[in-house]
Computed example of a mutant assay.
Amino acid sequence: MNFKTRFCLILGATLIAAGCSSTADKPAAAAAPSGPTPDSCTSSVVEHLKGQTATPELLEQARQQAGASSARILTPTSVVTLEYNRQRLNLNVDEQRIITRVTCG
């Protein structure tokens, strides 16, 4: 075998062995704290708003109650991005602006 072939075989074996190494020596990750964190949205707190008419005032009250940093009203024709923001409250409404769904994201 020539030098290049031997080198490639040794390098490949080393990389495979490194990928199979044990993680037992690594410290365990700290457990996540339970409960809402500051500026984290909790939609279950405002589930009672379903069936009500969405207004800017109600949106702000819901945002504060849910602990969200931002909030928006989503109509059936709203164009939204696919970005997930766990600190944002979403009030989904129907054509008459009646709240049909409450989520965070």
Rank of each mutant, 00 (worst) to 15 (best):
T14R: 01
P33C: 12
R97L: 07
E60N: 07
K50E: 02
E60F: 01
I99E: 00
G12S: 05
N2L: 02
N92V: 06
R86E: 11
A62K: 00
A24D: 15
S34T: 15
Q64I: 15
Q61W: 00
S43A: 15
A62F: 03
P56E: 12
I73L: 06
G67C: 09
T75L: 12
P33I: 05
Y84A: 12
L58R: 07
N92R: 06
F7T: 05
F7E: 10
D39W: 02
P36L: 11
A13I: 07
Q52V: 04
A30K: 11
R86A: 14
E95G: 05
S43Q: 15
C41F: 02
L49P: 02
N90E: 07
S44I: 05
V79Y: 06
V45K: 11
I99W: 03
R63A: 10
I73K: 00
K4S: 13
V93P: 03
C41R: 00
V93T: 07
C41K: 01
G35I: 09
R97G: 02
R63N: 07
P76G: 00
Q87F: 08
A29H: 09
R101M: 09
F7V: 13
L58E: 11
Q87N: 13
V46A: 08
T5Q: 13
T75V: 04
T37E: 12
T5H: 12
L91G: 04
A71C: 03
S70M: 10
S22Y: 10
E47L: 10
L9R: 01
S40T: 09
C20K: 02
K26D: 13
S34D: 12
E47Q: 04
T55G: 01
L11Y: 05
K50Q: 09
N85C: 04
A24W: 12
A30G: 03
G19Q: 05
I16V: 15
R63T: 01
A68H: 06
A68E: 04
A17C: 14
E60T: 05
P33W: 03
E95Y: 07
T14S: 15
L89P: 08
Q52R: 11
Q61T: 14
A31P: 03
L91I: 08
V79P: 03
T23V: 15
T23N: 11
R72Q: 15
C104I: 09
G51I: 10
C41Y: 01
E83Q: 11
G105Y: 01
V102Q: 02
Q96A: 14
